[in-house]
Design a protein around this nucleic acid. Structure first.
Lengths: 333, 333
DNA sequence: TTGTAAGCGTTATCAC
DNA sequence: GTGATAACGCTTACAA
């Protein structure tokens, strides 16, 4: 197996370890002939450099730590994919650790990664306070995706959730809706509260009062969407549209409506949030707000690479894109 | 920052490096007092062992290489999650590399991982021939998930796709269907051909001839499901049910049917394959075959850990579970 | 341009 | 039990 070392190559090629290292890394000019000899030896012995050893010696691990929150949400998964894909073209490899949406786990994850001497860190989502992250990571290049905070010196790649939700709600209002129910996302989750804020601002801007009977506290699940509808219907509160916390919740809303025999969008319109893959194939296809998840992920990697290279990089807030499909109908005012 | 080394701890605690290492790893008994001193020093200096260094010295990296095929398919993603989740409780960290469903990329991915001296390898999907994998990995513990082959000495954690598809098709037949269309998955993809085989066997076992007008070559996408329906309808071939290559394809089938105003399941029944999350919230909820993706992933990690520990482990073939929902109707024979 | 040698931060093998 | 000391495989001054 690859028990061959740089030393073996050196011997076979009749040069020193240093020279081998030089041709390996292009660190310095090497006599063409020796270079050829080295290359041949490498090829012949099937030598693969030991990255562990070179990390120790070089002080860089060529590894990027990625801390995820394994909830299996397509949105976060897609971000992770973007991160990985972007890294794929580079010499860096991503190493994962999971935070499970719990501060203590997240802290452990970060520490485990730092123990491996990663050259940079990408935090996808998470719940650890910004300042704590700064303290923990010190001057280790770090970028935070899908979160936004004002903490000192943290680079965030995030989405304007408030605006997205505003646009969605505004769209419904423009179509003549006034009685707009909302299914909120997970309590205390920043994305959820931002989206709710957007919903409220849209109402306010259009002179529509907030009716608390129209707001349901969900948790981003499809089940919570179903429960919201069941509840609304049971309480006999009138509504002509619902703003779901995300696409999955919208799916639940839509199914519950189906069970109760209310037509979408003829009787009730629905909007989601995310634009996950399946969303264009629901019945009817769902109007939603596209989050550029993959792009956010790759942007995070790019940002990190820049930081590692010593360049500056500032936070970036993406804006979603309203995707109009068939789940919203115009109604008479 | 964590520039403190084992040496610093040794000095502060008034012992030698070796002793520090001993308390760190519990490699040997240590005088309680010294142990206490060491622990205190570690705590006070905020020392975190350098895993890179210990890997080099110890010969084990405590790292598991995971090669994925970044297609963003929920099925494969879920497997990866299972792998990661299972590893989470251990001292091993997963490091990723992507194969992009291309043999050359996959080979590079494996080599990159081996260069990092991973202690084991999990291959999720992929297209590299089994023998090549064996050659490449030598005696490095390796397990292959979501693939099945007879190659020498490879451990595979897989699914019985043929059987799953057989069950699905049989279910339709039991419900009185005879004209059953099928949308095949990606050409040459083993899962796809296995599923098609299952479909054929079910027909054969029940004395139904294979009608080539009823089979459409798809590619696991929703679009191919739509195209299949458009085609079937355009050609005016009669059918009362369709077996989709996977859930996503089923979504496409269902949407196209909707566009053509054919009722599901009243006029046409549909079955999918995977049981991805969204599947229980489609309209109507989709009857499908549940693949224990997450379980397969965690099983893979467990198997690998066993192998690393020097224990034996043999391949495992999971069977899917038929999930009956509302997309299949009984029809008069 | 090339070789020598001193690390990098651990673990492991010895004697004591 | 404990402490020197030699690996581990590579990078990188520093000389030559």
């Amino acid at each position: 197996m690859s028990k061959t070392t740089i030393q073996d190559i050196a011997r076979v090629a009749g040069v020193s370890k240093s020279t081998v290292s030089r041709v390996l890394n292009g660190t310095a000019a090497v006599n063409p002939e020796k270079k050829k000899a080295v290359l041949e030896a490498i090829d012949r012995l099937g030598f693969k450099p030991n990255l562990i050893a070179s990390s120790l010696a070089g002080g860089r691990s060529m590894t990027i730590g990625v801390v995820t929150q394994l909830i299996g949400s397509p949105f976060y998964d897609t971000i992770a994919q973007g991160v990985v894909a972007e890294l794929h073209e580079t010499d860096y490899s991503p190493i994962f650790a999971d935070g499970q949406w719990q501060a203590t786990e997240e802290l452990e994850a970060i520490q485990a990664l730092m123990g491996r001497r990663v050259d940079g860190l990408v935090l996808i989502g998470g719940s650890l306070p910004g300042d704590e992250i700064s303290d923990l990571c010190g001057d280790l290049p770090t970028v935070i995706v899908a979160r936004q905070f004002s903490g000192r010196g943290n680079i965030c790649i995030s989405m304007d959730n408030e605006l997205g939700s505003y646009q969605l709600t505004k769209h419904l209002i423009d179509k003549g809706h006034r009685k707009i129910a909302v299914v909120r996302g997970l309590e205390h989750h920043r994305d959820a509260t931002d989206r709710f804020d957007g919903y409220q601002r849209a109402l306010r801007d259009n002179g529509i009062g907030l009716d608390s009977r129209l707001v349901y506290q969900g948790d981003f699940s499809a089940e919570s969407g179903m429960a919201a509808v069941d509840n609304l219907l049971a309480e006999k509160v009138e509504f002509t549209a619902v703003v779901a916390a995300n696409d999955l919740t919208a799916f639940g809303v839509r199914l519950a409506l189906h069970h109760h025999n209310v037509a979408v969008p003829e009787q009730v319109s629905i909007v989601g949030f995310d634009d996950q893959l399946e969303t264009s194939f629901t019945i009817p296809p769902l109007t939603t707000l596209r989050q550029p998840a993959r792009e956010m992920g790759s942007q995070a990697s790019k940002a990190l690479l820049e930081m590692i290279a010593g360049n500056n990089f500032s936070s970036k807030v993406f804006q979603g894109e309203l995707v109009l499909r068939e789940s919203v109908a115009e109604i008479a005012r």
